[in-house]
């Protein structure tokens, strides 16, 4: 099937030079990098809170030049391999959104929440590498950042029909772009040579049957996405909480009582994240 809109978008994605991110995160990191008492793990901890910088660091370490294609999936490992000087350069030259309002932070807040919950669920299910699943959670909505940064006209149209027709962001995307943010994000991560362990959950977090190699990790990210929306943390583009797919309930066997037991821990972690988000909001409005 020939679909001009899809082709146009993919062409744009291939030409994508670099994604901008939140100005306060870059400002904070720039300040940390200039301070000699700040250690590599502290810098990693801030980079891990930003989906755009995380994707950049992973893209770089998995690039042909650095020589670890499709192998490295966490920021802390990437930093050991790239070294602080490269990270410094990356931050020093990171581009930022020119026009950013406090409410735009909602998407970062949502992504952070999903990263955290994905990590906790992965640990609860005793998956092999919870940190990696958390990274997949952080990146799951990267496609939405791309829409905001590089497809702005379409982005505002999607925003408008979400509001007028009361449909989900994803349905609106399909109408306007003929593809959704999961596909956009997965497409980019694949072009950037990221490991499949990250691509699968990003590409299929709304349709977990598509995830062939990492089905459980993918289901965890969908579950985390729903829980974060239900909890009311951040803003994923629309206010709805979709039903989990049956496959997700099968693959993430956490019944009500187990979730209830987990909840106090999750609440504590949400609380911590809120501090960070608040700091970013204040820096933006200052």
């Amino acid at each position: 099937m020939i679909d001009d809109k899809r082709r146009e978008i993919k062409k744009k994605l291939r030409g994508l030079q670099g994604l901008p991110t939140l100005p306060p995160i870059v400002a904070k990191l720039t300040q940390m990098i200039g301070d000699e008492t700040v250690s590599a793990p502290q810098i990693a901890a801030v980079i891990e809170r930003d989906q755009v910088l995380t994707s950049k660091v992973l893209r770089l370490v998995n690039s042909a030049f650095y020589g670890f294609p499709r192998r490295i999936s966490t920021v802390s490992n990437a930093i050991v391999l790239l070294g602080l000087n490269v990270i410094r350069t990356l931050v020093l030259t990171a581009s930022i959104f020119e026009m950013m309002q406090s409410r735009d932070i909602g998407l970062w807040e949502h992504s952070l929440g999903v990263a955290m919950v994905s990590g906790v669920l992965a640990r609860e299910l005793r998956l092999e590498n919870p940190e990696e699943v958390a990274t997949a959670g952080l990146l799951h909505d990267l496609g939405k950042v791309v829409e905001r940064a590089s497809l702005f006209e379409d982005y505002t149209r999607i925003q408008k029909i979400v509001q007028d027709q009361k449909i989900s962001w994803r349905e609106a995307e399909k109408e306007i772009l003929h593809m959704d943010h999961a596909e956009i994000g997965g497409y980019l991560l694949n072009r950037w040579n990221l490991p499949e362990r990250l691509i699968d959950p990003v590409s299929w977090h709304h349709e977990v049957s598509g995830a062939k190699k990492f089905p459980v990790e993918t289901a965890v990210v969908q579950m985390a996405d729903l829980l974060v929306r239900a909890r009311g943390f951040g803003y994923g583009g629309d206010p709805w909480v979709p039903e989990p797919e049956d496959l997700v309930l099968e693959r993430v066997p956490l019944d009500r009582s187990r979730l209830e037991k987990l909840w106090p821990e999750l609440e504590g972690r949400f609380y911590e994240l809120r501090f960070f988000i608040q700091e970013m909001r204040e820096a933006l409005s200052a």
Binding site: G18, L60, S63, T89, L92, T93, A94, S95
Partner: peptide, 11 residues
């Protein structure tokens, strides 16, 4: 600008 160049150099 150094911002543009930096990203280009690294990638």
């Amino acid at each position: 600008t150094i911002e543009e160049a930096g990203e280009r150099i690294l990638f």
